[in-house]
Structures are given as C-alpha cells and as structure tokens.
Amino acid sequence: MLSVSKHSEIFFRNLLKIQRRKSLQFNPWNASSQETMEQTESHKPRVSRLDLFLTFSRISLSSFGGAIFWARRQLIDRQRWLTEREFVDVLTLGQLLPGPNVLNLTVMVGYRFAGWTGAAAAVAGFLGWPCLVVIGMGVLYQQYGALPQVQQALAGMSIVAAGLLLATVIKLAMVLPRRWRPWLFGILAFVGVGVMRWPLLWVMGGLAPWAVFAAWKEQA
C-alpha cells in the first residue's frame, strides 16, 4: 500500500507536471515531468507550535521584496522541515489556489506539522509582525507624509515600485506559449480591468471558466 506522501507525490507529478527544480518560476506549460525524481521516503520532523511561530516570524521579518526566497532558505536549508521537492509541491499548490501564495504555503506547512492550531501559529508569526510594521509606517506616513522632502522621496520610490511590478509582468509573460489563446485571455483581462475599469469579479466570472474550459479541452 502506498503511503500518503507517495500518494501526494504521484498526485503532484501528474496534476502539475512540476519542473524538477532549477527555478521557482511559475510555468504551467513546462512538461518536464519525465525527469526522475527521488523516491526516497521523506521523514517528518517533530515541530512544535512555538517552532512554527518563531520560524515563520523569522521568514516574515527577513523577507524584503518577496518572501519565497526566505521561506525556502529557512524551511529547507536551516530547519530542514521540508525537502526541496516537498517545498516546490506545496508552493505550486499555493499558486493554484486564491490568496497570497506564500500565505497558502504557511497554512499548509503549519497544518502539516501541527494541525489547525499549527496553521494558526504559523500564520500568526507570518502576518503578525508585518502588520505591526506597516501600521507603524502608516503612523509615520500620516505624521510626515505631507512634508515636501518625504513627498519627493515617496514619489521617486513609487515610480520604481511601478517599474518593479512591470518587470515581474514581463518575466511572467515570457513563459506564455506562443499561441493565440493564452495571449487573448491575457489581453482581455488587461483591457477589461485595466482599460475599461470593470469590476474584477465580473471580468473573472466571465473569463475564468472559459479559460479553464479551453485549457481543459486543449489537453484532452
């Protein structure tokens, strides 16, 4: 009989065709699942709720500009709670689901080691501190945000922040296959939400089922 972790391994290989590693770039068209994967049975370390809280606090407080890099480093290299493959599996599933990817990863890792309360402890560590930090920044912004020097610095940073987001979009768009359909859906989403300024719920309600159905037909 297969163990649960074997089951989920097979599930992920077939469901998501995960790239073996190299990069954590999100590319659902990459079908390199033929590569051999380590079949070694993974050990499951004992992790307490306090450990979860502290480790996710550390991940959160050290992650400037994206948490995935720091989550990898803590969970795989430092704490050795997950193997590389387990990490990619959990992250990929997190990307499939709505909500922030790394938060979904936090919930799943917490749940895996200590059930519901473990998930709560991990989330408290992961979101609690940044909440306090951004609120502290909010206080400063309300106090000093109107000063000319601060205004100028913020304007300069905002221009860079817009560029950072645009660069991320370009990187992601490079994995799209050169076929008309994915690009059509991307353009429709952009025009509906970004140009026409229609509510996201309408646009997603109209496009998402159609796009998923088309992708389903295409692979069948």
């Binding site: 089951h7 989920s8 097979i10 599930f11 077939n14 469901l15 998501l16 065709k17 999100f26 659902p28 068209w29 990307q95 499939l96 817009a162 987001l165 645009l166 991320t168 979009v169 992601l172 768009a173 994995v175 799209l176 994915p182 690009w183 059509l184 859906f185 991307g186 353009i187 429709l188 989403a189 952009f190 025009v191 939400v193 970004g194 140009v195 996201l200 997603m204 496009l207 998402a208 796009a211 998923v212 159905f213 088309a214 992708a215 389903w216 295409e218 692979q219």
Partner: peptide, 26 residues
C-alpha cells in the same frame, strides 16, 4: 484523487489572466 488533471487545466487557463491583471496593476 491523486490523478485529477483539472489542476493543470486551471493553472494553464488562469495564468494568462493573472498576467493581464498584473499588467493592469502596473
């Protein structure tokens, strides 16, 4: 349900939409 291919269809279908929405954000 370890073999459901619906997950891949969801990812392939939604990724272009995600990219379009992020472009709108930018």
């Amino acid at each position: 349900h370890p073999n459901a291919p619906i997950g891949r269809a969801i990812r392939r279908g939604l990724t272009p939409i995600t990219i379009g929405l992020m472009l709108a954000s930018a």
